[in-house]
Design a protein around this nucleic acid. Sequence first.
DNA 1: GATAACCTGTGGTCAGACCACAGGAGGATC
DNA 2: GATCCTCCTGTGGTCTGACCACAGGTTATC
Lengths: 239, 239
Amino acid sequence: MTQRAWRTVLEHIERDLIEGRLGPGDRLPSERDLSADLGVGRSSVREALRVLEVMGLIRTATGSGPQAGAIVIATPSGGMQALLRLQVAAQGFPLADVVQTRLVLESAVAQALAADGERDLSAAHRILDAMDVPHLTAPEFLALDAQLHLALAEASGNSVIAATMAGLRSAIESYVLEGSARIDDWSAMAERLRAEHRQLVTAIDAGDAASADALVRTHITGYYTAAGLVPDARTVLTD
Amino acid sequence: MTQRAWRTVLEHIERDLIEGRLGPGDRLPSERDLSADLGVGRSSVREALRVLEVMGLIRTATGSGPQAGAIVIATPSGGMQALLRLQVAAQGFPLADVVQTRLVLESAVAQALAADGERDLSAAHRILDAMDVPHLTAPEFLALDAQLHLALAEASGNSVIAATMAGLRSAIESYVLEGSARIDDWSAMAERLRAEHRQLVTAIDAGDAASADALVRTHITGYYTAAGLVPDARTVLTD
DNA sequence: GATAACCTGTGGTCAGACCACAGGAGGATC
DNA sequence: GATCCTCCTGTGGTCTGACCACAGGTTATC
C-alpha cells in the first residue's frame, strides 16, 4: 500500500473536477464502476464519496434514473458549517477567534454594501419586519438574527464570505443560545438589537460606509459581551 | 433506516466533543468497539472517521500502543484546505470571490499587526531573507510568498483567519502557478514582489496601520491583475 | 391506449475475512 | 539481575460478497 486507497479515489475525482471533466450537475460513475476502474474496493470508494458529500460537493440518491447516484452540486455552505462546527467543538478554533473573524467579515460586508449602489436589500428588509413580531422567544429571535446577517452577506455577492459567515454562525450557535439565557432582561435586549439592526440597514441604504462599519462592530461586540461569551471583546483586528 | 448509519456515528462523536467527553489528544474507541456500541457496521464507522480525518479532527495510525488508533487532533488548516480547494475545483466558489476574501482577511491582518505592539514577526523576517536568494524559480518563489503571507496571518494570533487564509491560498495555488507562466519578465516581477513585501513588513514594524493596509491591497491586487487571474481586480469590499 | 407487474441498476449496510504494523509480554540468554 | 529477542495481541486498511430499499424504465396485460 503506497497510499491509502480512498485517497486515490479522492484525488482522481478532484483531478476530474479541476480539469473540467466533472462539473456541477454532472453524475459520477456508479460506486461499483469507480471501484473497478480504479482497482480499489467499493468500501474505499464509499469512504471518499462520504467525504465529498459532507463537504457539500456531491449529493447521493438511491434508486435509478437520472436523479439517482452521486451528483456534483458544489454547495459549500453545508460543508463549511460542518467543518467549523466540528473544529470549534473539538477546540481547534477558540471561540474568541471565531467572533473576531465574524467581526472582520461583517465589517467588510457592511462597508461593501454601503458603497455598492446596485445592492438588493429586500431580503434583509423582510427579515427586519419579521423580527418586529412581538413576544418572540430568544431562540426564535436569534434564528431571525442569524438570517439577517446571512442575508447581508449574501447581498454582498461574495459566496466565500457568505459561506464562511454561515459556518461561523452555526459553529457558535449553541454558545449564543446558552448566552441568551444569561441575559436578565431579554425583551430589552431584543429591543436594543432591533434598533441596532434598523440603524445598520439605514446606514447601508444611505451609503454611509463609515457609520455602517461602526454600527456593525458595536452591534456584534455588544451582544457577545452582554451574553458573556467573550471575556473582553477584543478589537485587535478591528481598530 | 430512519437515518444513515454513518451520520449516527458522526453525531455521536460530535456530541462527545461538544460535551467535553472527547478533546484534543484523546483517543477514540476502536472501530470495532464503536461499531458494536452504536449498533452499526464497521464500514459505517469508517465512513464517519474518514470524514473526521479529512476535516483535520482526528488522525489515525495503525499498530498498537497509545499512539495507535484514532486520536483527536483538531488541526483545522488541513481540513480548510481540502474543503476550499475542492469547492473551487467544483466551481462552488468563483475565483474572484476567493481573491476578494483574501484581500479582506489580509488587510485586517496587516492592520492588526501594525496596531499590536506585542507582535512577533521573526518568522516573517526569516522568510523575507530566504526570498532574497537569487535565481529562484517561480514555483520556489511563490511557495515562499505563500509562507510569508501565512506567517503574517499566524502572527496575528487568530487561528480561524490563519486557517482560512491557508485554505484560500491552497485553493488557488494551481491558478497562481499557471498565472506565473503568463508573466513575461518573471525576474522583474519577483523583484517588485520582494520590494512590496519589505515595504509591507516595514510599515507593520513601524506601526503604520494605514500604510500597511494600502500596501497589502496593492500587493495582492497587483499580482492577480498582472497574472491575468482576475479580469478587473474588484475593490468592492475594500474601499 | 392505459394500467399494472416486473426488472434493472443505484446507493446503504452489514459480516467476515485477510493484511501490515506497532508495541507490549514473556522467555531466553548473558 | 539486566538485556535481548521472539511471539502475541489489538489496531487500522482493505477487499469481497451478500443483502436490502428504492426509483424508474420496460414489458406484459387488459
